[in-house]
Design a protein around this nucleic acid. Sequence first.
RNA 1: GCACUCGUAGCUCAGCUGGAUAGAGCAUCGCCCUUCUAAGGCGAGGGUCUCAGGUUCGAAUCCUGACGGGUGUACCA
Length: 566
Amino acid sequence: MKIKSQLSNIISDALKSANIESDDVVISDATKPEFGDYQYNGVMKLAKILKQNPRQIATNLVEHIDTTGMIAKVEVAGPGFINIWLNDEWLGKEATAILNNDRVGVGYVEIPQKVVVDYSGPNMAKQMHVGHLRSTIIGDTLATLLEFLGDDVIRQNHIGDWGTQFGMLIAYLEEQGADGATTELKDLEQFYKDAKVRFDESPEFADKAREYVVKIQSGDEHCLNLWQSFIDASLGHCEEVYDKLGVNLTRDDVRAESFYNPKLADVIKTLKEKNLSTISDGAECVFLNDSEVPVIVQKGDGGYLYATTDLAALEYRAKELKADRICYVVDARQGQHFKQVFTIAKQSGMVGENVALEHIGFGTMMDKGGKPFKTRDGGVIKLIDLLDEAVVKAKESIKERDAHSEDELENIATVVGIGAVKYADLSISRESNYIFSWDKMLSFEGNTSLYMQYAYARIQSILRKYDSEIKGDIIIGDETEHRLAHLLLKFEDTLSKAATDATPHTITSYLYDVVTQFMKFYELNPILKGGIEEEVKMSRLQLAKLTASVIKKGLDILGIEVVDKI
RNA sequence: GCACUCGUAGCUCAGCUGGAUAGAGCAUCGCCCUUCUAAGGCGAGGGUCUCAGGUUCGAAUCCUGACGGGUGUACCA
């Protein structure tokens, strides 16, 4: 339900029939309940242009607003605000209409786009660590969201599988023998360390490693096989993490750095042809806006750099995949890099003018002291360990609560623990750094996943207790029901905003509002207790059921599961 | 040096395409479980929105500058 655009139309019509010229009508959420549900603040601006008293214009306009349908009443307030109240009957009718709708009333975008979402991007030489968490889950949420709204989404996992360190790794892999390697690889971090030790202590090994780098690049079959088996094993680790996280990335989504390797020479060729690049200190460089520091696209020794690979990837995505919008869900620290690469891609024509290029940057995960998040001894925290710990901690706190069977407990702990980690991350506006705190995310109070999951479980419990058919319409009986129904119908407006701005936290704060409002409704309006009229009971049951559907769908888009019982 | 980014309650954060008395959660202090899951609800206290100018009928929001934190900045990704 696109409430705002419907209201916007009504106001536009009113402006027309009042003979007032105006361009686009912007409807805002009311800042306070006393001011209704929505407000139109455009009159003050119009007053300036028309050189008239804003209150007079507002009073005139209000008389032309159609209040026979969705709007119950409008009022002029203050210097010329127009406050809008939604009609209870309309709310009830609309809410009833989406009761059995599996999209809970959310429509599709008018013009579907082809969107490439680049996210996760782990390095194959290392185990995934906490630094990969944000890219992976923000990217996955964005992809799921856009897909749900009707865009054609192409997920791209730009894994790091190319570069000098792989010479060392496959030389070491070969030395360990295939069988030993499979076990060794269980801990990539350790494997890398061991290989590095070997590299540093043995000049012969180091030579071999360097030789293998060249051999991979030139397509030597033996080395490529070793490399491939290494990548496969490493990718297996990532998939284990994706599986735990419930992230929808598969091998089909992998477009590795190596994939673009054959295209890099052409990138340089294009840049030279367009006279964008010049040689400086022996390296092929692009100087942007008379900037002193160039973007280096080819090293003095002929090697390519990540800017080159990203340009190749941009061209591939724009021309081969025919993307309308390309989103890079990558650490905010790479902002400058993307700004440069985007500019070059457009200037060189590798990407068409009308393709939207977006760097969806995010901040760093910090510890309580505001320092980058590390283990006690200063090492990186493996993502898989973090997730396992979350489940263990969740289990401890659930155990105290209620009698659950071992299986139930395990399942709930997994859903709650993983959900807590994801929600904590997604609920912070992504650009800023965020402080990682077990206490906060697992305290299960306030704006956390458990608060949502708990509300969902409570609703399920009510629906279980009332085990006959629920039928009938939603009839708005009081203020809390009015607000709850209104919130539930705002779901689409919320998702649209989150999709445009690429801000998952828009969805989490919405869900938090929904649940808070439900809790208020539920405290005030008993559902199953005695002495309630059948019609009222049904309406409240339906409202509860619809709330549960919105919570479930909202969390689903965030990649968070729910359970029927906690 | 230059560029980007952030600065809102004791703490963690919303709000930023300009609107009315700046909002949540945690923490603190009260109240509500014979009553649909109290991991809940109700209430109280807590603010010079870093500072100084500017634009405007109106600024936490836009512009300029200062201060403070973070980040990036020529052959790693």
